[in-house]
């Protein structure tokens, strides 16, 4: 906390904090207000006498009804959920094992391999989707959920591996040595001692991976084409923007509903998540 006079607290703490909170929350507010605003208000010109962009007197659920009944939104939600969960699971399993190996097993070139994995994470998706689309086509995976379930790990595994490697390195190696003297094999020591201690790290990696795949846009746009296969980010933007016509109400309703699962995941695990980013283990 900032010590001293009251005005210092306001100038250096409360006012910047308020500005920050406002900046972060305003898009959400805009999303909500647009989702419940009737069309007549949405398309009212800015110089009309009753123009009130930040408020509505006649909230409506019409856009949400339209989204759920007239579009494939619920299918998109289901698609996104399955794809995000499965790719997160694959990436977590691989990332935990790879991270453990890189942190603990002294094999030749472990350091170089670790760096190599990190470098693949830095290759932008906007470049990688070109060769990947070739691969997806060759395996005849185009327009199926597998196209995404198998390509998302290309960026999720490096990320999970790197995060888990850091976490495992912070766990004192004596714990494991002690377990091995106590009669556990290397695998059992990992299973019973290291993994339970690493739960906060695993949760953080999982939340991140889930969020990344939930929000992913470019692979989903390129690899999926039929409307019933799409994910929320692609479905909403491709089906609710027709030509140059933006259906703002349903669009924002889709964005709102689409962000709910991620918000839920974060709020459930926020404590573990913070522990995973900041802490390790105290002896």
């Amino acid at each position: 906390m900032i010590e001293g006079a009251v005005w210092r607290k306001w100038v250096f703490f409360y006012i910047p904090l308020a500005a920050f909170v406002f900046l972060l929350l305003f898009p959400f507010y805009w999303m909500i207000i647009t989702a419940v605003r009737p069309d007549a208000e949405l398309y009212r010109p800015w110089n009309a006498p009753n123009y009130a962009p930040f408020w509505t007197a006649n909230p409506t659920l019409e856009h949400i009804r339209y989204l759920l009944e007239e579009t494939l939104f619920s299918t998109w939600m289901l698609n996104t959920m399955i794809i995000a969960l499965v790719s997160t699971l694959i990436s977590l399993v691989c990332g935990v094992f790879a991270g453990y190996a890189l942190a603990r097993l002294n094999f030749p070139f472990a350091g170089g391999l670790g760096t190599g994995i990190f470098v693949t994470y830095l290759v932008p998706q906007t470049l990688l989707f070109i060769p990947l689309s070739d691969i997806v086509r060759n395996f005849r995976l185009g327009d199926t959920p597998w196209a995404l379930i198998l390509t998302y790990p290309t960026f999720l595994i490096p990320f999970c591996t790197w995060l888990m490697m850091g976490y495992f390195k912070a766990i004192p190696k004596e714990l494991e040595e002690c377990a091995r003297i106590d009669g556990a094999s290397r695998f059992k020591a990992m299973l019973y001692i290291i993994l339970p201690i690493a739960v906060p790290g695993i949760l953080s990696a999982g939340i991140f991976a889930f969020t990344l795949s939930w929000n992913e846009f470019i692979y989903a746009l390129v690899f999926l084409s039929s409307p019933e296969q799409k994910t929320v980010p692609v479905g909403v933007t491709s089906e609710l923007i027709r030509g140059d016509v933006f259906f703002w109400g349903p669009l924002m309703a889709g964005a709102l509903l689409g962000s709910i699962p991620v918000a839920l995941v974060y709020s459930f695990f926020v404590e573990h998540y913070v522990a995973g980013l900041t802490g390790s283990v105290k002896g």
Binding site: L175, E177, R180, I181, D182, A184, S185, I197
Partner: peptide, 20 residues
Amino acid sequence: LPPMDRDIAMVFQNYALYPH
């Protein structure tokens, strides 16, 4: 022999208690 088969017990400087 791996550590588990040597029939020894070890006490570490930082105790290495399993925190969970």
